[in-house]
Design a protein around this nucleic acid. Structure first.
Lengths: 128, 128
DNA sequence: AAAATACTGAAGTTTCCACTTGACTATCTC
DNA sequence: GAGATAGTCAAGTGGAAACTTCAGTATTTT
């Protein structure tokens, strides 16, 4: 039935080439980190400077700045530097993107699963 | 879904290690990997054995089995071993959890942002 | 019974990511 | 201008995660 395709370790190095990440890759990765989610959560209470954001997190300001870059790259946060202070505020755009991704996939997957379910039901009729 | 034919289901050897991460941590982490999302996508077309799942991915069967364990732990996939074949199928439960997380946070964040906006408006009126 | 199939488990390698340190720039306060 | 404040940059560390190899265990086939 199933083709005995040998799952031999084909040493095709798929990692050596420049891997350009998709938008969903970046989004899921960004939201996968608890620290970043905590940052987002605090920002919903109002804009904060980088150091104010860092204060309760127990990590260095540099680490927070790095997190911020990631959050900015997928439009979850917007920042703006005035004088020596960078002000960070939440941005719902990235969040909307995520919701759209999920809605789209959920629909498509549900459709496929329905088709599959119908097919299986037909087969079950005679076998049980 | 359809009823599983109870012939000789073997127990899934899932390590019952202390769960340190939150459910959303695991969910976002699981979905953050492109390989795992590809696996999920293929499973929407129907159940597959581990080796069938591995075939087009260009990685070893062992790696796929490891991914499967992660997907199982957040209820995105359910597997069942009959004889020597482990059959994997998608499970919408984890997906629903994710949607709920997003909906809840979206609402709460929007509420806070509204409050913030109102507060700023008040301050504007008082300081004319 | 022997060989092939379909995993499973343990242990090693490699690669990535969060986080740090320390030096540096820009800006505000005195 | 001197010194403090807010953030930035470059490089490095440690540990987790992805993936591998290889040896072992059931199960099915011949």
């Amino acid at each position: 039935m199933s083709k005995p395709a040998p799952a031999k370790p084909q040493a095709v190095s798929a990692k050596t080439e420049p891997v350009l990440k998709s938008e969903s890759d970046r989004l899921f990765h960004a939201l996968g980190d608890p620290t970043r989610r905590a940052m987002l959560d605090r920002l919903t209470h109002g804009p904060l400077s980088v150091s104010a954001l860092a204060a309760p997190l127990g990590i260095t300001i540099t680490a927070v700045a790095q997190h911020l870059q990631i959050l900015e790259e997928c439009d979850l946060v917007r920042t703006e530097k005035l004088g020596r202070v960078r002000t960070c505020r939440i941005e719902m755009a990235g969040f909307d993107t995520l919701e759209k991704w999920i809605a789209a996939h959920r629909t498509e997957w549900a459709r496929r699963l329905d088709q599959l379910g119908a097919l299986l039901d037909e087969l079950d009729e005679g076998s049980e």
